[in-house]
Design a protein around this nucleic acid. Sequence first.
DNA 1: TTGTAAGCGTTATCAG
DNA 2: CTGATAACGCTTACAA
Lengths: 334, 334
Amino acid sequence: MSTTIKDVADKAGVSIATVSRALNGSPLVTDETRIKIVKIANELKYTPNMMARGLMLKKSETIGVILPDLHGDFFSEVMKGIDEVARDNGYHILVSSSHSDKNEIESMLKVMRSGRVDGLIIMSPHIDSTSLNDHITNDLPVVLLNCTINGKENTSILIDNFEGARQMVRHLIKHGHKRIAIIKGEENNFDAEERLKGYRSALYENGLELNPKLEIPGDFNEESGYTAMKKILNLKPRPTAVFASNDAMAIGAVSAIQSKGLKIPEDIAIGGFDDIPIAKYLKPSLSSVHVPINNLGTNAAIKLFKMIKNENNLSDGKTVLPATLVVRESCGCL
Amino acid sequence: MSTTIKDVADKAGVSIATVSRALNGSPLVTDETRIKIVKIANELKYTPNMMARGLMLKKSETIGVILPDLHGDFFSEVMKGIDEVARDNGYHILVSSSHSDKNEIESMLKVMRSGRVDGLIIMSPHIDSTSLNDHITNDLPVVLLNCTINGKENTSILIDNFEGARQMVRHLIKHGHKRIAIIKGEENNFDAEERLKGYRSALYENGLELNPKLEIPGDFNEESGYTAMKKILNLKPRPTAVFASNDAMAIGAVSAIQSKGLKIPEDIAIGGFDDIPIAKYLKPSLSSVHVPINNLGTNAAIKLFKMIKNENNLSDGKTVLPATLVVRESCGCL
DNA sequence: TTGTAAGCGTTATCAG
DNA sequence: CTGATAACGCTTACAA
């Protein structure tokens, strides 16, 4: 049995109310008794039971974070950003990975809504998130990361995928490329769709043909980049540039190109998205679109705490973080 | 206000006791009433309050994880491993990063011990962890990741840093190198010390001189690898091989070497540690020591749940996971 | 300034 | 099978 407030009260010869007051800095206690109580509490290694405390105060001092997955640089960086803000606010983090599974998310939401957390940050890039709508009740502040839900856009933090992709493809066009393929991201993924739109937009505004044959499926994983690139290399005429919807696939694509004995960027230029840390260490270094991942987490957390503190679940509108082009060797610069 | 068990009971025209029983699968309710109650509970979107529940059951169905930091491939991989096992056991994860700060860890421990979690996984590579000893009480199952505490070794999961480092250095020696430098890891870091010992051991057993001048300080970050390598390149005579205590520093070292116009492995061979995902994509690809990171997390979690379930906080002894040599180009193979 | 007692939302122990 | 009612450990009016 761990020591309770009663143990402290007994040993100090006071009531539990006094112990509670003393330990919570109430002005309604003599310094003398407070000192005595604090001393005894330390001796007994007393730690208030958060369950009981939370039950009274209806607060858990915990925020929940639901991510599609827990591994990889991207998500850990988001976590780091959230953690920093949470720490500053004296809050803890309850994490869960949804594996982008609908049922998982729903059950997560249910658990998270059971008084365990005071607020929620959800990242659910799967487009089929309408079901989220039903399960997000208004008694819990929620911030959406990188996804939108009908009627809840104002609580979202987004990355400007569209503009980022458009800039990358524009840049490739500036290098003189006219036949540019794209390796698409995961099906039904919000980021993937936006990046595809950005790609198309750049082609369109430059009067280049929008050819479905140049839009090769991928799933954001390295292997899919490899196989997609194999397909691209077999196209006649061969595209002279490729925009991979993320860096992981770009890496796979690079392998495929190099295994054919082709040169980057001379034979084929390539651009990625995400600007993961590896990007600059590759040979050739990978041109990419930088995403302020860390900001994504901090922004979301800051917004959430604002909602928690204000007791109003309305936030100050949707936030869009810019994605910026980073040119390196693989696009033909340098 | 969220709906409580009382709301359900009122609407169903039964007592709260019956609702509790029905929803917890007690055999002491008619199927008829159970069905009615379940239906109403769903209608009302009733979710049991975990605070109240935890207060009664003295369980939180949550495990705590204290990591030195939250970002980077390494830690996120550990988290993933833990998450998988936790999910299988219907548990949630409360994370915290300690920033290897002594006070932080202590306050974390206190919070974690306040009924919020049923068990704890702590990764605290800082050697000065004797203070942990005082703060780990026996009423909470604890598994130590990659660190040891006097008298608590049996609950640790370790990576065989010593043997891994030794094998890498042995391998460099086999390549004919006689003057091998090491870029050391962070001061007072458990992993760093073990890897240094492994380095020395390999030299010693091969009759090579143990020269303090060849042991260059580092801190596990890329930049420190760069500056350390600069120093190494100025040594006379110049070492022909370098063992970097982790891959991040090895990457920095590679940059330093290449910026001097030197060739790897011809002019200088290099070996890292951790086998991070980037390692194989570098040019030259980086020889490293593979660490079963994912296993680290899963093993720790499995061990913890065994302790939680058995209600005995004694585990089945310390676990040491092997670290295995991965040879690529940077050491001179291939 | 301190103590008493009423909750907070559950589950568990009794009677019925 | 079901319903009161007593915990669980804490905070906080209300009394003293």
